[in-house]
């Protein structure tokens, strides 16, 4: 089926997310206005106006009442989802790279970049406590000190017990809410661009510039599967419906101008979760895919690319019928 093209951003997409029900898609881009769309028909519901720089990350809570955005203008903003009004703006020293709501939606976390002499840090706030938001004094703050490389992606663990971080050098680490380091591992050899959890939080998939995506067990960090490509992987998502994963990536944006789209390999690539075998590709973007996500019902998926488009794909019947022989 022809994909729905969401054309509302002027610059490259940095992150897209479905809400829990999957009726809305949130998109952040390097322009300063995150958007929210109806996933069914691609109509734009609205924008969040207020940032003054590239928005690197976006998330919404489980009942779709609040939205969290982090940007290069050194702020992390909390929005009311329904009205699009800003509830709070948290000032940081450097750009906000990644953020997220906890399972209950009561806690938020975000991480900042290591630039201009400031270290990379994890912040955790309790948004029920108004004073924390007003004063900007977090519930806990974790500086990431060398030799640990900076955080490039982070998510909440199950039942908001801990935070899982992916780092520049390919490390994975786990911190509790007080900021204590619990454990870590290093299976990737390149920056971890994205981490996405399986619907029941038992597994997660990482996407790395080392041309692979890996599936890990949440509890033990044991690497379960590996999906290989020939290009940096920017994002990966696990289907909630089938044993499938989808990978998005492509040649680094800085090198794209010198190569044709064919050589960049900007396809979304589908792999079998268990067999690690590729079974399908979807073309379309004319730049690398920066973020990719399955709809929570697993019947469609969306990808956001360096080309500034979000493409919403509903699967054909033959995808749903397709099975591996074994």
């Amino acid at each position: 089926m022809k994909p729905i093209m969401l054309h509302g951003h002027e610059r490259s997409i940095t992150q897209i997310k479905y809400n829990r029900e999957g009726d809305l898609i949130f998109s952040a881009a390097k322009d300063s206005q995150p958007n929210v769309w109806y996933s069914l028909n691609g109509e734009r519901l609205g924008t969040f106006v207020g940032h003054n720089g590239a928005v690197w990350c976006i998330d919404c809570n489980w009942d779709t009442t609040k939205v969290l955005t982090g940007a290069a203008d050194n702020t992390c903003k909390l929005w009311d989802c329904e009205t699009g009004t800003q509830i709070s703006s948290l000032k940081t020293n450097t750009a906000v790279r990644t953020n997220g709501f906890s399972y209950s939606g009561n806690l938020i976390m975000y991480t900042t970049d290591k630039t201009m002499g400031f270290p990379c840090e994890i912040y955790i706030f309790d948004i029920r406590d108004g004073s924390q938001l007003q004063t900007g004094n977090p519930m806990s703050k974790v500086p990431i000190e060398s030799p640990m490389p900076k955080i490039t992606s982070a998510i909440w663990g199950p039942n908001e017990e801990y935070i899982l971080t992916g780092h520049d050098g390919g490390d994975l680490n786990q911190f509790d809410l007080k900021g204590n380091w619990i454990k870590g591992c290093k299976d990737h050899s390149g920056q971890i661009n994205d981490i996405q959890v399986y619907k029941d939080f038992s597994m997660f998939i990482t996407a790395s510039t080392d041309h692979t995506a890996r599936l890990f067990d949440m509890e033990t960090f044991e690497p379960l599967k590996m999906f290989k490509t020939e290009r940096p992987v920017n994002s990966a998502s696990i289907s909630p419906l089938h044993e499938h994963v989808v990978l998005g990536g492509g040649q680094e944006a800085s090198l794209v101008t010198t190569t044709s789209t064919r050589i960049g390999k900007f396809d979304a690539r589908f792999y079998h979760l268990v067999f690690e075998e590729e079974f399908g590709r979807v073309k379309g973007h004319f730049g690398p895919i920066n973020s990719i996500a399955f709809h929570p019902d697993g019947l469609s998926y969306s990808s956001g690319g360096e080309d500034g488009y979000v493409r919403v794909h509903y699967f054909d019947q033959n995808y749903l019928d397709f099975t591996f022989e074994y």
């Binding site: 829990r20 029900e21 999957g22 489980w62 009942d63 399972y103 209950s104 939606g105 009561n106 199950p158 039942n159 908001e160 029941d200 939080f201 038992s202 929570p296 019902d297």
Partner: peptide, 20 residues
């Protein structure tokens, strides 16, 4: 996952969001 259901219910105000 099933064993932890109560924790999840507590966190989300008793709303069961396990199935879509």
């Amino acid at each position: 996952f099933a064993e932890q259901k109560q924790i999840r219910l507590d966190l989300r105000l008793g709303v069961d969001t396990d199935e879509l």
